[in-house]
Amino acid sequence: MLNHFKEIFKYRELLITFVKKSLDARYKGSFLGFIWTFINHLAHLVVFTIVFQYIFNVGTSNYSMFLFVCLVPWTEFTSAISGSLVSITGNANLVKKIYFPRQLLPLSVSLTYIVDYIYCIPIVLLAMLISKIPFTISLLFLPIIIILQCIFQTGICYIVAALNVKYRDIKQIVGIITMAWVYANPIFYPIERLQSLVILGRTVSDFWLPLLNPISSVVLSYRDMMYFGRMPSIKNLLVALISGIIIYIIGYLVFNHFEKTFAEDV
């Protein structure tokens, strides 16, 4: 494991190059370039506002922002997973011909979407300003939450990237899982809705959700900081950290297991 980080550090230049390359490549040749990401998210926000606030008339005050602050990082999260899915198979020519730590490929995809999210933060802040959501000191926790998301996300990226080399239908499965996963998180609904749900004597909101879907603690932390203007709870931070480390280690082990035959299987 220590070697794993040493290797990554040794090849950090290549990692940075990969991240830059995929960020650049996405907007290469398009006229507006990065502005498309802004437009995309703003369009989302406008649609949410119209649909939920004016048509559905959802009770939650400022529902579009309630949704927006969680949905932006969530979109990046799922994009990272589907992006890393093909990170090994799509770079077959590299994997077959040149040595470098293979983890760099899914890791670079994960980091690309983290950077993409960081680029999006100004939009979220702008939206907060317009919606008159107060900026509080809790926003200082943002980097920590992003790092926690990154650890968890990278672990998942390792797993799907490695599995996809052996079994090409992982792609379909991951598609279905990410589609359903969004509803397993309190993104569209407040966490309070789960408080009354009790399974085996324990509430879903306090026990089952963090246990079975620990990434929800990251989602809730984003909402705490950027919607409610309050500190993320220590419990959420701890759940995110511990689950992140566990998933990362699992991802590392799975990746290591499959890595040995990448050059032959892709």
Binding site: K21, D24, A25, K28, N91, L94, I98
Partner: peptide
């Protein structure tokens, strides 16, 4: 030329 990106 492994890893060349055509658009770059």
């Amino acid at each position: 030329g492994a890893g060349f990106h055509p658009d770059f």
